[in-house]
């Protein structure tokens, strides 16, 4: 990254015309990580987004034009819009926490009001085999089963080993990332 913009405080934004990239330094004390994720996700269809931590007390968002080319003005506009989205996400994150009960109540009422009670047809097609008798709260379990020694938690899967060439996976999450066509 080579230069910054004169209308933005020093050290916050820099761009690199060679890579068609622009980066924004984010103070996590101001912008919670969930807000950074929210803003970043909204931009992955229009540019490449990369997050890292250049220092313990800082986050960095790097946006790269998918075309591989962008002028100074385009990069300034891109990071400006990202900054607007970021502040919107940060505030929404706070509002959602403040108004959680109200939002959940209205949503529940709206969906429940629209769905109504299940009909006999709905019940006829309901799968009672296992799922209906799951006991997520452990109500039917004995005290010993519920509070006895628990097995060690399953380890989270982590990236390990090498993967080369010939395996193909299917993107099932469908968030619209283009596959490269090398």
């Amino acid at each position: 990254m080579q230069s910054s913009y004169p209308d933005i405080p020093a050290g916050l934004v820099a761009h690199d015309l060679t890579d068609a990239a622009v980066e924004l330094r984010v103070d996590p004390a101001i912008y919670p990580l969930q807000a950074v994720y929210g803003a970043a996700y909204i931009f992955i269809d229009r540019c490449y987004v990369f997050l890292d931590r250049p220092a313990a007390d800082a986050l960095r968002v790097t946006l790269t034009a998918k075309s591989g080319q962008a002028d100074v003005g385009a990069l300034r506009a891109l990071i400006g819009e990202f900054a607007n989205e970021l502040i919107s996400c940060a505030w929404r994150h706070q509002i959602t926490q403040d108004n959680r009960v109200l939002l959940e109540t209205v949503t529940l009422q709206a969906i429940a009001g629209a769905m109504g009670p299940p009909s006999l047809d709905d019940l006829a097609s309901f799968d009672f085999s296992d799922q209906g008798f799951d006991d997520p709260l452990g109500i039917a379990m004995s005290w010993e089963e519920k509070h006895g020694k628990k097995p060690p938690p399953a380890t989270t899967s982590e990236p390990t080993g090498d993967t080369t060439g010939d395996t193909t996976g299917n993107p099932t999450s469908g968030h619209g990332v283009e596959e490269p066509t090398p």
Partner: peptide, 25 residues
């Protein structure tokens, strides 16, 4: 699709939440 599949769809839930002005900056 059943009727309840449609109005209880996760996209509908997301749109209800997103268009509730009590959650909108």
């Amino acid at each position: 699709s059943s009727y309840r599949d449609l109005v209880g769809h996760e996209t509908v839930r997301a749109m209800v939440l997103a268009s509730n002005l009590d959650g909108q900056p």
